[in-house]
């Protein structure tokens, strides 16, 4: 079996597994479940991106995007946390 197939299959499995995070994000009883869901979802997308980089043979380029994603995900969660600090306080 070609190594590329393994990477694509792993990425596909991870995409299916993000449905768990999505469930928390959409239904989540409290807002903190939603924030955690988004955070976990963002972490999965960084891994999916690096796997795609391995599959397409352009890991150097995709690692840069993955790093940018991780930063942006952090910014999003930070903004949500700040929202609650202001809204409650």
């Amino acid at each position: 079996m070609e190594l590329r197939t393994v990477f694509v299959a792993a990425a596909a499995c991870l995409i299916v597994l993000t449905l768990g995070y999505l469930y928390r994000l959409v239904t989540g009883p409290t807002i903190f479940d939603r924030i955690l869901g988004l955070s976990g979802f963002g972490t999965s997308t960084t891994i999916i991106l690096t796997l795609m980089g391995c599959a397409y043979g352009r890991l150097d380029m995709f690692v840069d995007i993955a790093l940018g994603y991780a930063l942006l995900n952090f910014v999003g969660v930070l903004a949500a946390a700040r929202y609650f600090e202001r809204a409650r306080g």
Partner: peptide, 27 residues
């Protein structure tokens, strides 16, 4: 999900995840 969620903060977070997946598609 972003349209149907009643809590607007939840809808914004769903929209953020939408942006992430759209960017993955472009990549």
């Amino acid at each position: 999900a972003a349209v149907r969620v009643r809590d607007l903060v939840g809808a914004v977070l769903a929209l953020s995840a939408y942006g992430l997946v759209l960017a993955l598609t472009w990549a």
